[in-house]
Design a protein around this nucleic acid. Structure first.
Lengths: 232, 232
DNA sequence: TTTACTTAGTGTAAAAATAACACTTATTAA
DNA sequence: TTAATAAGTGTTATTTTTACACTAAGTAAA
């Protein structure tokens, strides 16, 4: 009978939150409290251990709320990371010693991503996080553990998800213009589209519905507004 | 400071192994040893707890080998299942009581799938598995825990993977005919293709290489053989 | 009231990809 | 020689994708 072990691994969730704004795509990183002899805490993405009785999706939502105050996001699981040597850095080990009951214990982590409109949410750092901040997706700093790898896999998953699952509409104002929508696609996919062809494609989507309203307060020809209808 | 718990979850891996044969797609299920008062052990897909020092991919491979003797498969992680109530069935609980050190402990499981040629592998059940058998993918029996859900998600992932990642060529003999290849696609995707159009598409794939050889021993016009070249 | 500025909005033609379709060919066995 | 079987092959119509440039509607300033 093979060796049988129990309870020697910890399970965490980590969230890669992408923030979208008219012109840019960012990632949410938190900064840990520094140690007494440190200038600046290490940066990381918001994640923490899963409680014994909660679902993974639930844990992801709770942890995110605890660390950043963000709630109500659509969090999509995309990969589980479990390299036994995920914690290579000395600083990371030190941090674990201070904040975990079993710092030496191996942790596997289930990673989620989400995409939100930056300006609709306020980031309020918590007990654990010195601050929570947006960083450009192309200039992600050195992060704790294997978080840089997690972020880059999340970006792949996000791009894939935008095309396949039509995530993304949540990011726009309730009433949006086609130019705003095109912007969103271009920024996330890092790719330009032809205006006319883009609009032709959108017109095929049944859940993008034209409204009898126009943009107001702009100093040029006002655009028609559209809304997104979830269930068709 | 929020409650912080450690070591209260177990981590397992589960493998959904699809077996392909000229005409059919099957799934590998194992049958557990029955209890003394049972006629027949419950069926399940091969999975077990992860050891403290092994990678997840490594655990998936080891567990699979232990339970079925299959080795050297390409195992692809596709989802992690962690519902706190994964174990609903009374029989499942009973089984855990007999075979796990901490039977009441919640288990999250990282699921993998693979696809192999059935006739190239021999299934040898192990200590834990009464037998290991192939069942038609359309007639999967009631399985332990949430294994039915895992299998159906795996099938989705497989179909997606066949088109996107060109998994699938491992399934064919080293030298194969285009009809065999078409068969494989048709069975896995459960969909018919036009012979001529299919062949046109294959000719675009640089890694499918025609050989100067023909099929032998068939009682009809022998087909040209092709091979699959991994790195282009 | 005219002009300048800004972004919205629109159609067409060429090119590429996909879909539909049926007969001839090479081999073996009787 | 014939019958049986699966292999192999091209063309045309349809659909999808791409490339491309001017006019329209509103605001603000002269």
């Amino acid at each position: 009978m093979p060796e049988r072990l129990s309870g020697v691994l910890d399970v965490s969730v980590d969230n890669v939150i992408f923030g979208f704004d008219e012109n840019i795509l960012k990632v949410l990183v938190i900064e840990r409290k520094p140690f007494p002899d440190e200038k600046k805490g290490m940066s990381a993405i918001p994640g923490d251990l899963v409680y014994p009785k909660e679902s993974l999706d639930g844990a992801a939502a709770r942890v995110l709320k605890d660390l950043t105050s963000l709630e109500g996001l659509f969090l999509k699981q995309f990969h589980t990371f479990g390299d036994p040597n995920r914690v290579k850095d000395l600083k990371d080990q030190e941090w674990l010693t201070n904040f975990r009951i079993n710092p030496e214990r191996r942790v596997i982590t289930i990673a989620y991503y989400s995409l939100i409109k930056m300006d609709e949410y306020q980031l309020l750092p918590s007990y654990f996080a010195e601050k929570a901040d947006w960083v450009d997706v192309l200039e992600v700093p050195d992060l704790a553990f294997d978080h840089n790898e997690i972020v880059s896999k999340a970006l792949e998953a996000l791009r894939h998800g935008l095309e396949v699952d039509q995530i993304g509409f949540e990011l726009l104002p309730e009433k949006f213009t086609l130019t705003q929508l095109q912007n969103l696609y271009e920024i996330i996919l890092d790719k330009k589209f032809d205006k006319r062809n883009f609009r032709k494609n959108i017109k095929k989507m049944e859940h993008v519905i034209p409204l009898n309203e126009k943009q107001e307060g702009v100093l040029h020809k006002p655009a028609q507004l559209f809304k997104f209808e979830k269930d068709v």
